[in-house]
């Protein structure tokens, strides 16, 4: 019943905030490599759904998730599974850049340190450099690793946060409107980075920009009022959607 190439297979996923049902039973298979975009009007449940993949919803009081979400065939909501371990495999980038108010180096080193990924200072240095290089930030910050991460520009901060996530070698990177606080140039850099990262990681991105979804994603899912309305190859969604609602949304008639 599940797609064998899928990183995540979701069956009848419902999310409640108290008595309020935010998602009404989502079925979706997310491919192992490439970028999947979630689009839809504000409040339709994109962020809520995204947070089910790394169980960040667990930290919200009164939030309940039901249904099944399999990652590589294993139920991530299994009672015996520690969400802490899951989150090391599924990284997340937030809408507002949230670097720790520490040095750039310590921002990257935080994850490897708590997971004990490196055994020496030299190894850690190398990992920090590798992560910053992958995030395309190395050349900009290599001379000021000791300076605070909060002193960087918004776009740099967002790439720092991505580097921080990469440092713990995740398999998946979730991004919730990562470019919404960035100017066009920083956005272009971020998109170029996503383009590169998708070779190695499964990336799921929530975005309000149709153009961005069209540019960076391979598959697009359109959500509306807590339902998954349409899910298909990005090209198909943007040129020839099969649902009227999708059509209206991408052409700007609903929003």
């Amino acid at each position: 019943m599940t797609d064998t190439n899928a990183k995540f297979s979701c069956r009848n996923v419902k999310v409640h905030y108290g008595d309020f049902e935010a998602l009404h039973g989502i079925d979706i298979d997310i491919p192992d490599r490439g970028v999947t975009a979630f689009i839809g009007p504000s409040g339709c449940g994109k962020s809520t759904f995204l947070r089910t993949f790394n169980r960040m919803n667990d930290t919200i009081d009164g939030c309940r998730v039901s249904g099944k979400i399999l990652m590589d065939g294993n139920d991530i909501y299994n009672k015996n599974l520690d969400p802490v371990l899951l989150r090391a495999r599924v990284g997340m980038v937030f809408q507002k850049p949230n670097p720790f108010p520490k040095s750039i180096y310590d921002n990257i080193a935080f994850g490897p340190r708590i997971h004990g990924l490196t055994s020496s200072k030299a190894e850690l240095d190398a990992l920090v450099e590798k992560s910053l290089r992958r995030a395309g930030l190395w050349d900009e910050v290599k001379d000021r690793l000791k300076l605070s991460g909060t002193g960087l520009s918004g776009g740099q901060q967002q790439r720092l946060v991505i580097a921080r996530a990469i440092a713990v070698s995740p398999e998946v990177i979730l991004m919730d409107e990562p470019a919404s606080a960035l100017d066009p140039i920083a956005t272009a850099k971020l998109e170029a980075l996503i383009e590169e990262l998708k070779e190695r990681y499964c990336i799921i991105i929530v975005t309000h920009s149709m153009a961005q979804a069209a540019r960076v994603s391979d598959k697009t899912a359109f959500f509306y009022m807590g339902d998954l309305v349409e899910y298909d190859a990005t090209e198909k969604i943007f040129t020839n959607p099969s649902n009227n609602r999708t059509q209206d949304y991408i052409t700007g008639r609903t929003g």
């Binding site: 989150r87 946060v161 996530a165």
Partner: peptide, 26 residues
């Protein structure tokens, strides 16, 4: 800011680690 704790949690820090390593120093 709760976003700091979220950041730590999203990297796989336990709740205790997020509180003691990020929140408390701040």
């Amino acid at each position: 800011s709760p976003s700091i704790v979220d950041g730590a949690l999203s990297l796989g820090a336990s709740h205790t680690q997020a509180v003691f390593k990020q929140k408390l120093p701040l």
